[in-house]
Amino acid sequence: MTLLPIHIAIAGIWGILILASLIVFTLTRLQPTADHSELVQRTTSWWAMIAVFTAAFLLSRTFSIVIFALVSFLAFKEYLSMIPTRRADRRVLFFAYLAIPVQYYWVSSEWYGMFAVFIPVYMFLFLPFVMLLSQQTEGFLKAVGTLNWGLMLCVFSISHAAFLLVLPVDGPGSVGGTAASGAGLLLFLVFLTQFNDVAQYTWGKLFGRHKIVPQVSPKKTWEGFLGGMLTTTVLAVLVAPLVTPFDALHAGIAGAMIAGAGFIGDVTVSAVKRDLGVKDTGALIPGHGGIMDRIDSLTFTAPLFFHFTRYLYT
């Protein structure tokens, strides 16, 4: 096996994880009385998540696509379990679930045209049709609206991350065409999105003063947002040559875009949770909450980063 730049990048992520674990371990030793259980749980969950993604990256492209389909399924299931639904719509929900394997099939078959329209056009028109067959009009608009929105957020958006894997990218720095460069772009997107979450959280914890949208998410501050954006942009410029075809300017723009969109995705899911009166979207990932709590930023960064890359580099 030849050592590709992407392997170095993955090794770097494990390096950061080990470093973070050491810091958490030292913290629990230095302050034995304080409650660090959530921090410890969070770190442990990161090990599991990064292990799954490393395995997916190294094993095969198809396996990676299946993992993203699974993430979409879990997120969509969490969403449907959380929102008000109607008894009469069980069959409609079933069809909505079936859209997941179909959408990811378009990804693996590299059919961009169908991938881009299947959910926003065909499912958008098909689901209300199945729904009206039960002839229950009370709550119809709310039911079909919330269902389509969830499908867009959990399946359509997230599938853009997976489509990066099959995107035929060219331009300076691309590693001989498709496979390697696609994986590099996906790694760049997921890593920076998750890193930005942590960076904004950390900056906010240390210097957070001025709240941005206190009624939606009281812990989000300008200090956290701007500090996170700066860190993410700098990091994007530094790691771009390793895994993407971006020049420094494009890398910087991509980093800032990921930071901004990630923030908006995060507070959007916060708004949904507040509307529904729940704290976490679920309990699937110890210390983090549900899977939606973990991928909320990615639902906004994935499609934007995808089209940025597709417009400039294909």
Binding site: F73, K77, S81, R87, R90, Y97
Partner: peptide
């Protein structure tokens, strides 16, 4: 639910 054979996933 009772009377149905279609399993729809929910947490």
């Amino acid at each position: 639910p009772k009377g149905s054979f279609l399993l729809v996933p929910f947490f």
